[in-house]
Computed example of a mutant assay.
Amino acid sequence: MNPDVTADLADLDVTLTTIEKVVDPEELSDRIRELEAQASDPSLWDDPDHAQTVTSELSAKQAQLKKVRALRERLGDLPVMYQLAEEEGDADAAELADAERAELRADIAALEVTTMLSGEYDAREAVINIRAGAGGVDAADFAEMLMRMYVRWAEKHGHKVDVYDTSYAEEAGLKSATFVVHGEYTYGTLSVEQGTHRLVRLSPFDNQGRRQTSFAEVEVLPVVEQTDSIEVPDSEIKVDVYRSSGPGGQSVNTTDSAVRITHLPTGIVVTCQNEKSQHQNKASAMRVLAAKLLERKRQEEQAEMDALGAGGNASWGNQMRSYVLHPYQMVKDLRTGYEVNNPDAVLGGDLDGFLEAGIRWRMDQLQGEGD
């Protein structure tokens, strides 16, 4: 076998062994057996929320164990593939082995990134808020492009998306949007998307076709769980109801079912209009409010830690990514330096390279603070 291939396989083995030490397949198997026992208890569904938590964790743990074992099996098969190709002098078989090795390297790297998601809330689902910034109608259009980007990323990974609120701009695009991306570790994965996104292009809304720079803000929050000590007394909120509206001010609901909740102590305002009833909209808005309050609490605790010299910078730079469509084609992350020359693919949901680079960059930052 080619010495370079042998060295590469040894390197992949070292990386996978490190992952296995973190994941601990034996401990994972024990936890799966515990969850299977709970899931088989007929009384489990007496508490639907707890049942959902158990079944979701069981499914995620089974998938994780299956993935680790499959990678180990594929790595074990590769030397055999190369040996057979060499013995038979089969160039096509050797090419197939090379392709499998490249794919395996990418899959191991992707799993390695998930082992870096060890923050307190990383395993949670994600609430994403997008707001149009400076740039007028182009900014509103950009906000809608970003929402579509995240929804398509979620669809590619089999994550369900629930849209809680969309506030349409008058001419085109969105003033703001709030939606939840379901699935384990979606918060930890998408949290590196938080910050200011910048778009440079020839404006389709400018009759002279001039170049326009516009901005949109992305906020990523962890979904609040029952174990979180976030309580919102009725006395601290003001609830307003109003009629939902669609693009261009069109009414999409003939009843006053949309809900706006104002948290009086902080001034945080949350709206929800995409559910079918006022009750559902209020419940969804309260979930988003709780997520915002949880993030506020986390930032306050981080600020206290920083004041004691125990932490670093929790906001990873305001302007974090540029999407350039003219005069050249490029998307570049300003923190990690990661860039691609295919904005259409990125805006179509091909985000994994940016997410992986962002998670690795954040891990390096945290390790640097600990040194």
Rank of each mutant, 00 (worst) to 15 (best):
A60V: 10
K61N: 13
K61C: 05
K61F: 10
Q62R: 15
A63E: 08
Q64D: 10
L65S: 04
K67D: 12
K67V: 02
E73D: 14
R74E: 15
L75Q: 10
L75N: 04
G76F: 03
L78E: 05
P79R: 11
P79Y: 14
P79D: 08
M81Q: 12
Y82W: 12
L84R: 11
E86G: 09
E86A: 15
E88C: 01
D90T: 06
D90H: 01
A93F: 01
A94Q: 13
E95V: 07
D98F: 01
A99P: 04
E100C: 00
R105T: 12
D107P: 04
D107F: 04
A110E: 10
E112A: 14
V113T: 14
T114G: 02
M116P: 03
L117W: 11
S118C: 04
E120R: 15
Y121W: 14
D122T: 08
A123C: 10
R124S: 14
V127H: 12
I128C: 01
I130K: 02
R131A: 08
A132R: 01
A134N: 00
G136S: 09
G136P: 08
V137D: 15
V137Q: 13
A139C: 03
D141G: 09
D141K: 02
D141Q: 09
F142K: 09
M145Q: 11
M145C: 09
M145L: 15
R148W: 02
M149Y: 07
Y150S: 03
Y150C: 12
Y150Q: 00
Y150K: 03
V151T: 13
W153L: 11
A154W: 08
E155T: 15
H157M: 01
G158T: 02
H159W: 06
H159V: 01
H159F: 13
K160S: 14
V163A: 02
Y164M: 14
Y164G: 12
S167M: 11
Y168G: 04
E170N: 12
E170W: 08
E171L: 14
G173M: 09
K175A: 07
S176I: 02
A177T: 14
F179R: 04
F179T: 05
F179D: 07
V181A: 05
V181T: 02
H182V: 07
E184I: 00
E184W: 07
Y185S: 14
Y185P: 03
Y185F: 15
T186K: 06
T186Y: 09
T186C: 12
Y187L: 07
Y187P: 08
G188M: 04
G188A: 08
G188P: 11
L190M: 07
L190G: 00
S191A: 11
V192C: 12
V192M: 05
E193H: 02
